[in-house]
């Protein structure tokens, strides 16, 4: 079975195609964009690679740093909500009966099979001023009002629809909606591996469910929690479609700004610099996590 490792020719033959593919369509374009980030616009379509750092300098201006910071905050809130919502969901699936488990997992996976655009528009239909959310709340409001009149209290005024769309709330909600499965699946994988008798031992020793969760389940599921956080945070940080469709003028995230540089502003070098700054930030975050994990391993 180990022979294939030694047979170099075969190995090369098998590895060549994917390697070529990767080089051609991933490394090369990335390299080109990377070079652009050190260039200047020298015409409508021409870019001169001059080795300048002006693009990075501009990207570090307060305006853009602010958008970066805001993106980090939005992605962070999204990740936190996903974790808080996703953890009980993952736990529920782990402890569901064997009959229900595949259906619940399917329910989590189902959104993956639906186009992101369709899901986002569906969310817009719910959140619109005349959307389903407002209709429902308005209906409840009216019923409540007539109930008050019935008992002789003054009815509240007419229902003012809530502004649920085109603001930061909508963006975070949309991002949570899109990224929740990314959080639930690694959490589920980690929790499902957990030895049930450890939970029972904790209960047996007098701990209630909450303390068992905090002292036993969470620490043992830590690798799953961390990969869930990364796998949610990274795409949320670079989200483009959700803030574009659900956000207002003040809910721009960094990806929207980058898109504008490449398209409307036609400033590829600057867009490239912004993109790479985003990537560096992501890499640094992952590297710090990996370093921490290694330290924890050494301590353990």
């Amino acid at each position: 079975m180990e022979d294939w490792k030694r047979s170099r020719a075969l190995f090369a033959a098998v590895a060549t195609a994917p390697l070529t593919w990767l080089t051609l369509f991933f490394i090369v374009p990335m390299g080109v964009i990377w070079l652009y980030s050190f260039g200047t616009n020298a015409g409508l379509t021409e870019i001169e690679i001059s080795g300048t750092l002006a693009n990075y300098k501009k990207a570090l201006e307060p305006l853009y740093l602010g958008i970066f910071a805001k993106s980090l905050v939005v992605a962070g809130i999204t990740t936190a909500i996903c974790l808080v919502v996703g953890f009980p969901v993952a736990l529920a699936i782990v402890f569901a009966s064997d009959k229900w488990k595949p259906w619940l997992l399917l329910g989590i996976m189902l959104p993956f099979w639906t186009n992101l655009l369709i899901r986002t528009y569906a969310l817009m239909a719910v959140l619109r001023t005349e959307g389903y959310a407002n209709q429902t709340i308005g209906w409840l409001h009216d019923r409540f009002g007539s109930l008050l009149t019935l008992v002789g209290l003054p009815a509240p005024g007419a229902y003012e629809p809530l502004h649920l769309l085109y603001n930061n709330f909508a963006v975070v909600l949309g991002l949570v909606y899109v990224h929740l499965p990314f959080m639930v699946l690694p959490l589920y994988a980690a929790l499902d591996r957990l030895d049930r008798s450890l939970i029972e031992a904790s209960l047996d020793l007098g701990a209630g469910h909450l303390r068992t969760l905090l002292l036993i389940v969470a620490p043992l599921a830590a690798p799953g929690i961390i990969s869930g956080i990364i796998i949610t945070f990274v795409p949320a940080l670079g989200a483009y479609l959700t803030p574009d469709l659900l956000g207002g003028t003040d809910s721009q995230m960094i990806a929207n700004v980058i898109e504008r540089q490449f398209k409307r502003a036609n400033n590829w070098p600057f867009g490239a610099a912004l993109s790479f700054l985003l990537m560096y930030a992501t890499f640094i975050a992952i590297a710090i996590q990996a370093l921490k994990a290694k330290q924890a391993e050494k301590r353990g």
């Binding site: 008798s197 450890l198 031992a201 036993i216 353990g300």
Partner: peptide
């Protein structure tokens, strides 16, 4: 209870 699998907390 002392469990068949010991259930010693690994962390």
């Amino acid at each position: 209870m002392v469990f068949q699998s010991y259930a010693v907390f690994p962390h």
